[in-house]
């Protein structure tokens, strides 16, 4: 019995949990290939045109998995992982959206409606247990173990590893030391949803590009979920979507506590929540002196467009650091 997991949307964040869970239950898992042009094109072809780019990519991955001959497509419905905070409607309707766009996709749906960041509440996975014909007692045990693995994975992230790097430590025998980078004089907060930052087809490897420009990169997933709550009460206008709120709170922590010198917001064209959250961050922190840049990505974005902007942004910060240093040196000589 093969369970297919699309390498899209929240994949990089929850993969360790899902992998651990299904392996503990004794199933074989198949992950779709990395996003490529033909894979994405297939997704675009079957999806309604109005919807955002990441969903089109998700459908491309579903098709890819069906070509690989899996029995189920694991497609969780994310509604809540925290009280009063919702997922975007596209997540809430995702299983139906996939079934309608890709006929014959046999979706395996976990109903994520709980108050746990790791989603490992047995009631969410009861429909999965039922469909796979496994007793709930077995599911509970497997979830407990999976939750522990997820917690371990998140610990690696908190050390400053990207999700990809943390997964390599978890599953491929890499050590944390392999990913320790030199400390540069420039630190940029890169905020964007999992898929915008980690799908190389969307992000065009932005983390790598920034590191090549000698920049330390902090992403929201490197921060502890509790750390993200620190300034939530100061927020003038609560954001009631789960991940958009995480982005806003991470910007807040990065600016106030982590002394980032700039924030880059990477967003997919047509994202509803981002149109609010991006502007809200820009407005609320306008007086902080930390520059903010939005990078908007869609199906037609060229790589040079992205390169020019991140180069200009990094250049601005580095030249500022240099100038401030020069002025300081001149003043010291005068004294």
């Amino acid at each position: 019995m093969k369970i297919g997991i699309p390498r899209a949307l929240l994949f990089q964040y929850y993969y360790p949990l899902w992998r651990s869970l299904f392996e503990r239950l004794g199933f074989e898992i198949v992950v779709s290939d990395e996003s490529t042009k033909p894979l994405v094109q297939k997704g675009i072809a079957v999806t309604v045109p109005e919807i955002c780019f990441p969903i089109k990519i998700y459908n491309g991955h579903v098709i890819n998995l069906m070509e690989k001959g899996v029995d189920y497509i694991f497609c969780p419905r994310f509604v809540h992982i925290e009280k009063d905070y919702w997922f975007c409607p596209k997540y809430i309707g995702l299983p139906e959206l996939v079934e309608m766009s890709v006929p014959g996709s046999n979706v395996l749906v976990a109903e994520i409606d709980c108050q746990r960041e790791d989603t490992a509440d047995p009631k969410c996975y009861a429909p999965v247990a039922k469909k796979l014909g496994i007793p709930m007692s077995k599911m509970k045990t497997a979830l407990k173990g999976a939750a522990e693995d997820f917690a371990k994975f998140r610990e690696y992230c908190h050390l400053g590893l990207t999700l990809d790097e943390a997964a390599k430590v978890m599953f491929e025998g890499a050590s944390v030391e392999d990913f320790i980078l030199p400390e540069y004089d420039t630190t940029i907060g890169l905020i964007g949803y999992i898929y915008n930052v980690y799908d190389p087809f969307i992000s065009m490897n932005i983390i790598k590009k920034l590191r090549e420009l000698k920049v330390n990169v902090i992403t929201f997933d490197m921060l502890d979920a509790r750390q993200l709550l620190k300034y939530r009460n100061n927020c003038t206008r609560p954001i009631f979507w789960t991940f958009p709120d995480k982005l806003y709170q991470s910007a807040s922590v990065m600016i106030k506590d982590l002394q980032v010198q700039g924030i880059i917001h990477i967003t997919a064209f047509g994202c509803g929540p981002d149109s609010i959250v991006g502007k809200e961050i820009e407005h609320d922190f306008a007086d902080s002196g930390v520059p903010f840049m939005t990078l908007r990505i869609d199906e037609h974005t060229g790589e040079s467009h992205l390169q020019t902007r991140i180069e200009a942004f990094t250049d601005m910060i580095k030249r500022k650091i240099r100038k401030v240093k020069e002025v300081r040196e001149v003043n010291e000589v005068k004294r």
Binding site: P291, R309, M316, K323
Partner: peptide, 13 residues
């Protein structure tokens, strides 16, 4: 500001 670029924006789409 003070002879330094402190912020910029370019048209997007």
């Amino acid at each position: 500001q003070d002879g330094m670029v402190t912020d910029f924006a370019m048209n997007t789409v």
